[in-house]
Design a protein around this nucleic acid. Structure first.
Lengths: 329, 329
DNA sequence: CTGTTAGCGCGTTCAT
DNA sequence: ATGAACGCGCTAACAG
């Protein structure tokens, strides 16, 4: 790896001039410019982004903290983020929290140390600890999916999506609707989607049997187990289930099929996420599409904006969602 | 962002001493050490990884170039890479080539100027241009999925997997077997899997009708279209199809279902990849699992090794694969 | 138009 | 055990 100084010597100019050539400064004579360019060409010299960053205080890198790296949601999100960032020469430094709350905070620090220009955080919780850390980061940051006060947010409309789905079930004639959720430290998925369910049920004077409300984690198996508990423990078997994610819903379907239930005749079912799977399972799953890629794009736009303008005005946007009616309901 | 100098002043010591404390040098008296640590604590000072890298020539960052970011394969791969790297404090700088050959090369350069400690490349081709660039990178590099001479490789056993699959079809009594592949600039998927198919057919004295061999890109729709062409143009309708990816296979299934074919009775079908989808489509798809996460892990191990040992010995490993027999055959 | 001088924030001899 | 001085590779004043 040659340095700018060597190029300068070889071209018989000062380092400054070489720097000017590299950065397309207009104040260089064509003769000198060509001479320098030629030397650069010959030596295969590439300037160190490293050293450059040290001076300019800009790294052109955005840190992205994901809850779990190998999920369809993350995948789409990153894809959207990258699409937007790439246009402006930014790259993504990945951090995988792997569903551990502590790691989210750890990475927040690590990314700061690495001098990233901005951070996009997708947390699975909205705990006080995290909120505090987010506030102390002193860097452009946008949080996806959890409403954290005082910072920019890209939010899914969890509450309304859940309401819409449950309402749809009601309209199809279901009254005994069970629920498969996740832990409530996750405000968006755990609390808001559940609230949507509870509110609609309440508003319609429908009562919910104790065992109808179950909790899983974010995978197919736990959906299977949750459904099993519903079937085995309920005094009155529900006619429909609302699962807060597609995977949970698909796990539930697995169990139902296993015990010989026909879907949606014996049991209707819905999920959230519009995963690719939801389209191809039998029967295809009624769900809502959160447009994750769009979310990623928006988050990227917001972070770039706050980097450019150096303003600290926070803004929140609520993403659209799309109800996809299919055959499981 | 405070600097090491400020800490030094506040603690009434030299920058050197602060540096020693940070790096756990033994040659510091406990009194001084505690004083410095206290100041660091109070100010919330964090050393700049940036500046540090400039001196040490190590960034603790590995660049990862992916063919396409939002695919299950990439997802698993990155997950495996990250799992391994995280243990040693390395992070991933992501680069999405988006199936454009030029971008793979572009990113190779970009990652180099960003001073990453190593590069993991997953190309979709093995063109001369790329090979040349890979050789000139002067950085630890490992290539996944394409056999590029002169560098370390993590390889899938494309040829044998294809052979196994086609042989399996033969054993089930099929003789008229069609093929859906991809472009042959992709040596691994395009050439080797096709060769596996052709060889087995030939060795068994089976002839292949012209229209039985079709090509798609890496998505479901193109599998649908390819299958359509096979059905519509073939003089003799095949009884089985071997698609080189699950998505292609699933697209083909879509078309077959649409025209009322029953799978596997009227037409058997197999894919490659063991995507989550393959498990849940109806009927479930016979495929081979390439253990992508494992591939990522291996690649990460190899890159770390060549960083540590500064040896340039290249090594190639062939990954195991697992045949998964399901109901589409 | 071009060069000189000064750092950016840190680690590392080499003295003391 | 501590500190002064130097340099990593680059950009940004300020002169000329």
């Amino acid at each position: 790896m040659s340095t700018i100084l060597e190029i300068a010597k070889l071209a018989n100019v000062s380092r400054t001039t070489v720097s000017r050539v590299i950065n397309n400064s207009p104040n260089v004579s064509d003769a000198v410019r060509n001479k320098v360019l030629k030397v650069i060409e010959e030596t295969g010299y590439v300037p160190s982004e490293q050293a450059k960053s040290l001076r300019t205080k800009k790294t052109k890198v955005i840190g992205v903290i994901l809850p779990k790296i190998s999920t369809e949601t993350s995948s789409k999100l990153v894809s959207g983020i990258d699409e937007e960032l790439a246009q402006f020469g930014y790259q993504i430094l990945l951090a995988n929290a792997n569903l551990e709350k502590e790691k989210e905070i750890e990475f927040l620090h690590l990314l700061k140390i690495r001098q990233v220009d901005g951070i996009i955080l997708t947390p699975t919780n909205a705990d006080a600890r995290l909120i505090e850390e987010v506030h102390q980061i002193q860097k452009p940051i946008v949080v996806i999916g959890q409403d954290i006060p005082g910072v920019s947010n890209v939010l899914y409309n969890d509450y309304h999506a859940a309401r819409d789905l449950v309402t749809l079930m009601l309209n199809k004639g279901h009254e005994k609707i069970a629920f498969i959720g996740v832990d409530e430290s996750d405000i968006a998925v755990g609390v808001m989607r559940k609230k949507g369910y509870l509110d609609v049920m309440k508003e319609n004077g429908l009562c919910i049997e104790e065992h109808w409300v179950q909790k899983g984690i974010f995978d197919i198996d736990s959906g299977y187990e949750a459904m099993k508990r519903i079937i085995q423990n309920s005094k009155m078997t529900p006619t429909a289930v609302f699962a807060v994610t597609d995977r949970l819903a698909i796990g539930a379907m697995q169990y139902l099929k296993e015990i010989g239930f026909s879907i949606p005749k014996d049991m209707a079912i819905t999920g959230i996420g519009a995963s690719e799977l939801s389209k191809y399972v039998e029967p295809s799953l009624t769900t809502v599409d959160y447009l994750n890629k769009e979310a990623g794009r928006e988050a990227a736009k917001m972070i770039l904006q706050s980097i450019d303008q150096e303003d600290n005005n926070i803004n929140k946007i609520n993403l659209e969602y799309r109800l996809i009616e299919r055959n499981s309901l």
